[in-house]
Structures are given as C-alpha cells and as structure tokens.
Design a protein around this nucleic acid. Structure first.
Length: 447
DNA sequence: TCTGGGGTCCTAGGACCC
DNA sequence: TCTGGGGTCCTAGGACCC
C-alpha cells in the first residue's frame, strides 16, 4: 500500500490520527519476561471457558486471534503460552502511552487501553506536519515503552482507524509480514478504499449486522451506496441505517471527545463450573457488590441504578435493573438490591455468568463535600470516615429500606423471602447486615 | 470452534405527566 | 366521560467495541 499522493498532508488534510498498540497485553508480558521472546504468547482465560484477549504475531501465525475461545487457540497452537493478564500493569503502560501522545496534543480520546484517537487541528498554527508527528510518536513509543504500534492519519475517525489497521503487520501463509507503521488515507483514495471493503470492516458492524446485511444482498461497503436509507432502517433501525449510509459515502462526523465520562461500571464473572440456584448466587453477589461499591467510591460516584445480568449455560441471558430515587455506593445496599433482583429471576437453569452493574451516576452534593472537609482529616482513612459519616449512616439505612420497598412493590413481598428467612422480615435482616458492616453503636435501630 | 470482562449505544414498550 | 399527542423516565434486550 503506498501513500500516494506523495505530497505530505497538512493538518487540514489529515486532522485525525489513530494509534493502536500491537498485541498490547501479550507484548507487555514479553517485556516483563524475556524468556517468552519468540514463543507464541497470548493473554486470556486458560480454562475451558476462557477467551483470548491478546495474541502476539508469533501466535497469530498459527491462526490464534483475540476473541477466540482458548480451547480453540490451543488446538491451533499446542505450544501457546496463555497468561492470565495483569491489568494494573497494562494500565501503567497505557498511562505512559497516553502521556506520550499528550505531549503532541491534549486532544486525545482513548478507546480501551491500547488505542486512541487524536485531533491535530489544534496544532495548525505550530506548523506540525501530520506524517512527521506520526513517525515521531511511533519512535517514542518504541524507544520509551519498547512497544510497536500502527498509526493512521485521515480526514475523519472512520478512515484514520482503517488506516492504522492497514499499517499493521500481517500474517500471510503463516509468515509475519512487517507493516508500514504509518498510513495516510488521502481524500482521493478514500473511495477506492471503501469500494474494496466488506461491510464488516465498518465500525459498528458485527456478526449480527453482517448477517442481516447479507440477507439483503449487501456484502460490500459499495453495496450500501445503492440502498435506500429508509429501507435499511426498517431492518437495522434508523440510527444504524443513517450511520452506515454515511460511512459508505466516507462521511463520519464523530468528533474526538476528550474526557468522556463513564456512564456505568460493574463486574461480572464467568464460572468454570456453573452455579445452581439462589444460594450459590448469594456469595457471588456479595463479592460483586463489594467490588462495585469500592469502584464507585474510588471514583467518588453514587449510582442510582443497579443491574443484574445472569447468563445461563445455553448462553441466553436475562437482566433485571432497579433505579432508586437516590444514589448508593455501599456494598450492603448494592448487595440487597442485587439479591432482590436475583430473586425475580427463574434460576432453574444453571448459571455460567453473574454480573452486577451500577449506572445513572449522580454527583455527591456540595453539602456532603463540605461536611466531609469539615473533618479536616490528614489521612485517606480519616477522609473516608468523614465521607461515610457525612453521608450519614442513617441515610444508608433509609436507602436500603427504600430499595427493599421498591423491589417488593415490583416483585411482591416474597421477592425478599431468603433475606427474611434469617429474621422475621427482610428489612430487619437488612438492618442486621448493615449493623454488621457499620458497627452496632449507631442510631439506626428505629428502622 | 466456541465464545471473557470492561464498557457504550440503540430500541421498544410501558408508566406517567401535561 | 373518553380521548390524543408529546416528553421523560425506566426496564429489558440486543448488538457492538477493545
């Protein structure tokens, strides 16, 4: 692939840059353990239900790909080393990666840990040349992180991402062929690029949409140019139809969004051995609730909506959610809601995955912040105590009680049956749990 | 060949309010 | 007494991305 026309683009001709680190997780593992150099390495779950998250090019030679079931990967490559993944380490590298790009421009939008978009328009006046900047980024990432990457430059996000993909090494007949490293798609080349791409190359087109489009006889991006948007909308929904028709014309208005705020957080786990019945879910929910609560507190967020997802052995999944009139961030309340939601699900099938999520974030009120500062704590611990106290334990119990009332109203009193079997009534037991978590000598006995 | 764990966005239907 | 239409919020499910 050549970068014709050879005239280097200006910032206005190639304002969007996309960088994607090569085989990121697996590469970090090799940096930390040089004995792995030259061996096929992947990061992912090694168990029967594991999936490959990242694979080195050495592993890709054997047909190993990310997203592939580990069982399949091992079959294709019996010598594959599958490592469990150390996400804190990857986050560390990711921060350094972002810092290098931020030296070029602060206008970056990370997509996961290993890739990001940058908008170069702010550099117009500095006379920055996009190709030079791209090569310089690549050099610094190689020198300072010992990681390889591909960089794409284009008029918009759609082509910048396609370009970085094309800049990568490829595997041809079991051999790794080096990539170009940096690829620029000039405006005159855009149409030719699109014409040869399958629809699945477009952002947002996965297996399900690819199959739907195939049933409509649409296999190539160029096919989308001939189709009526309303007709497409009847099959894919108006938003997807509009997006695809625009992409097929090379039109992508998405901006690079700096500081995108998270809208949900959660934790889920797939079990090597499926769970059966509510009792087996109970412990899992407690653990998940603790993780979710800690994450919320770490981000100083309160969540109004708690959602539970259960996936059965046949991969069918169901979800339940409950929105409260107030935000919560404590494990006791989140667990109580999660448990009540679980009780509304038919659990006769065995369960392979349980997930608990928090969303509808609300800001802590200024009043609460002021209260917490009034404690003038010198340590993190004291600050945390202040936060807890400032929100008032009373409020926690009220939150719990109201949550339980809400759930009962929707699912009936029996929804809390197993909580109740520890006491006369679910509320009492919830309070007992609360007391266990917060200590006995507080003023909440009246609930 | 069989699908993880972190997320985002879209859709459709129902409840409720004006 | 019966009724419309629009807006907003919530819920459940589906699809997608890395």
């Amino acid at each position: 692939m050549s970068n014709l026309p050879s005239e280097a683009p200006t910032v206005d001709e190639a304002p969007i840059l996309h960088v994607d680190l090569d085989a990121f997780f697996a590469s970090v593992e090799i940096l930390d353990d040089p004995s792995l150099v030259g061996r096929p390495v992947a990061v992912g779950g090694a168990g029967e239900r594991g999936v490959i998250a990242s694979a080195t090019y050495e592993a890709r030679r054997y047909g190993v790909r990310s997203g592939m079931a580990s069982v399949v990967a091992r079959r294709r490559c019996p010598t594959l080393v599958i490592l469990p993944g150390r996400f804190e380490r990857y986050e560390e590298y990711s921060r350094r990666f972002r810092a290098i790009v931020t030296d070029l421009t602060p206008t970056i939008e990370p997509i996961g840990l290993d890739e990001l978009f940058a908008d170069l328009r702010g550099l117009r006046r500095l006379g920055v040349k996009p190709l030079d900047a791209a090569w310089e980024l690549r050099r610094r990432i190689e020198d300072e992180l010992r990681l390889a990457c591909g960089v794409g430059l284009a008029r918009n996000k759609l082509f910048a991402k396609l370009a970085s993909k094309r800049s990568k090494p490829t595997v041809v007949e079991g051999r790794v062929r080096a990539g170009e490293g940096v690829v620029w798609v000039s405006a005159p080349m855009e149409r030719a690029w699109l014409a040869e791409l399958p629809v699945s190359a477009l952002w947002g087109v996965g297996p399900a949409t690819t199959a739907k489009l195939a049933r409509l006889g649409l296999r190539w991006v160029r096919d989308l140019n001939a189709v009526d948007e309303a007709t497409l909308g009847a099959h894919l929904g108006p938003a997807m139809a509009a997006t695809l028709v625009a992409y097929a014309r090379g039109d992508d208005r998405r901006e690079v969004v700096v500081d995108r705020e998270a809208k949900s957080l959660g934790h889920d786990q797939t079990f090597a051995q499926s769970l059966r019945g509510l009792d087996e879910l109970r412990n899992v929910l407690r653990g998940h609730a603790g993780i979710v609560a800690r994450a919320l507190r770490a981000q100083h967020q309160l969540a109004r909506t708690i959602s539970l997802i259960v996936r059965f052995d046949d991969l069918a999944s169901v979800s339940r959610s409950q929105t409260l009139s107030f935000g919560v961030d404590d494990a006791v309340a989140i667990e109580a809601v999660g448990l009540a939601l679980a009780e509304s699900i038919d659990l006769r099938q065995s369960v392979r995955l349980v997930g608990l999520y928090a969303s509808s974030f609300v800001e802590r009120s200024d009043v609460e912040l002021q209260l917490s500062f009034a404690f003038d704590a010198g340590t993190e611990d004291a600050l945390e105590r202040a936060r807890l106290t400032s929100r008032s334990r009373q409020a926690n119990y009220e939150a719990l009680r109201d949550a339980i009332d809400d759930v009962r109203q929707r699912f009936g009193r029996s929804a809390l049956g197993t909580l109740a079997d520890l006491g006369d009534d679910g509320v009492d037991v919830a309070v007992q749990r609360g007391r266990a978590a917060f200590g006995p000598n507080d003023d909440t006995a009246q609930i």
